[in-house]
């Protein structure tokens, strides 16, 4: 009987101390973690909307998007965070859009698990640079092996066609969602 009581006491004691300790550490760390997350989002928003000075999250739209304003508080466009399937897993990206949604300002890949050295080239500048000032209407297209000839085309990376295509598809889907929101008047 004594043995059982001792067992229960020790386990309870360890549990209480560990819970208390973790609650304290969590209380200390939480503000930092939230600040880190916010700083990260903010930095990526302003990288894809370099002219922007402030932003405002669009709520209740089912995905993540921000309205971007310049120093005179004029609406200069949007930042859209969207994700979809790539070659090996999820690709999550953020892109800056002009206020009429017809032009991409810049693109950044936030998360991906593509093949190292091949698919991961979608995060590098030769690929992402192509999206600067790219036209999005009617939709973005990709070409393979030749220089893009139209203002809405990009060139897929050799050896990573599927990853490149995935990025284009994710963008097209996301922009389509934005267009629908705009048509329903929810963007104002």
């Amino acid at each position: 009987m004594n043995k059982v009581i001792q067992m229960l006491m020790v386990l309870t004691g360890i549990g209480i101390i560990s819970g208390g300790l973790l609650a304290t550490v969590d209380g200390w760390a939480d503000p930092f973690i939230i600040a880190n997350k916010k700083a990260e989002t903010e930095a990526s928003i302003f990288r894809v909307q370099p002219e922007g000075k402030s932003y405002e999250a669009l709520n209740n739209i089912g995905f993540e998007a921000y309205k971007i304003k310049n120093e005179n508080s004029d609406n200069i466009g949007y930042a859209l965070v969207y994700e979809g399937n790539g070659f090996q897993g999820k690709i999550r990206l953020i892109c800056g859009l002009s206020s009429d949604l017809n032009k991409i300002i810049a693109l950044e890949i936030l998360e991906q698990v593509e093949t190292p050295g091949l698919g991961t080239k979608i995060t590098e500048s030769p690929f992402t640079e192509q999206f600067k000032q790219l036209e999005t209407s009617p939709s973005i297209n990709w070409v393979k092996g030749v220089e893009p000839s139209k203002p809405n085309e990009i060139q897929a990376i050799t050896g990573a066609t599927i990853s490149s295509k995935a990025v284009v598809n994710i963008l097209n889907q996301g922009i389509e969602q934005m267009r629908q929101l705009r048509a329903s008047g929810a963007l104002q």
Binding site: N85, F87, G89, T115, I162
Partner: peptide, 8 residues
């Protein structure tokens, strides 16, 4: 197993 990549 890398050959399975691209199936999704």
């Amino acid at each position: 197993f890398m050959g399975f990549a691209g199936m999704i």
